[in-house]
Computed example of a mutant assay.
Amino acid sequence: MNPLLAILVMALTTYLIRMLPLVLFRREITHPWVRSFLHYVPYAVLGTMTIPAVFYSTSSVVSAACGLGCGAYLAYREKDMVIVAVAAVIAVYLCELLL
């Protein structure tokens, strides 16, 4: 395949994704359900990209689940991000030692 054609297709796709909302929605979105839905889209996309990678980042799915569970619990308890990350790494390390 021609590399210039591939670059052109990718550029066009990226442009359309960014341009279409500006063209289609000229007024401010005021509907509460739509605003709420759009508020959570970045978090859903980030979770969709991150969670599968977590399970393939260790040598065992069990240790990955242990680290994810530890991190999710501490994040739910509103701990600092550094504490959450370090605790998740320690949980994975200890779980790997036990396995």
Results as ranks from 00 to 15, higher is better:
Leu22Met: 13
Ala75Met: 10
Leu74Ile: 02
Val82Met: 10
Tyr56Ala: 15
Gly69Gln: 00
Thr50Pro: 08
Ala6Leu: 15
Cys95Gln: 01
Ser36Lys: 13
Val9Met: 10
Cys66Asn: 07
Cys95Ala: 06
Ala44Val: 14
Ile90Tyr: 08
Leu74His: 00
Tyr15Asn: 08
His31Ser: 09
His39Cys: 08
Tyr93Trp: 07
Thr48Val: 12
Trp33Val: 15
Ile51Phe: 09
Val34Ser: 11
Leu94Asn: 04
Val23Asn: 05
Ser63Asp: 06
Arg26Gly: 11
Ser60Met: 06
Leu22His: 10
Leu94Glu: 00
Ala64His: 03
Ser36Phe: 13
Ala64Phe: 03
Ala88Leu: 01
Met49Ser: 11
Val23Trp: 10
Tyr73Val: 14
Tyr40Phe: 13
Val34Asn: 05
Ala72Lys: 03
Ile7Phe: 14
Val61Ala: 12
Asn2Asp: 12
Ala91Val: 00
Ala44Leu: 14
Thr48Leu: 15
Tyr56Gln: 13
Phe37Asn: 09
Ala72Asp: 05
Cys95Pro: 00
Met81Phe: 14
Val41Asn: 02
Leu94Cys: 04
Thr13Lys: 06
Lys79Asn: 09
Thr58Pro: 04
Tyr56Arg: 15
Ser59Leu: 13
Val62Cys: 07
Met1Thr: 15
Val23Pro: 05
Ala72Arg: 05
Val54Gly: 08
Tyr73Arg: 04
Ala64Asp: 02
Ala87Gly: 03
Leu68Arg: 03
Tyr56Glu: 15
Leu5Cys: 11
Ala6His: 13
Leu97Trp: 07
Glu96Phe: 06
Ala75Tyr: 09
Asp80Gly: 04
Asn2Trp: 02
Ala44Tyr: 12
Cys70Ile: 12
Ile51Thr: 05
Arg77Glu: 10
Ala72Glu: 02
Val92Ala: 03
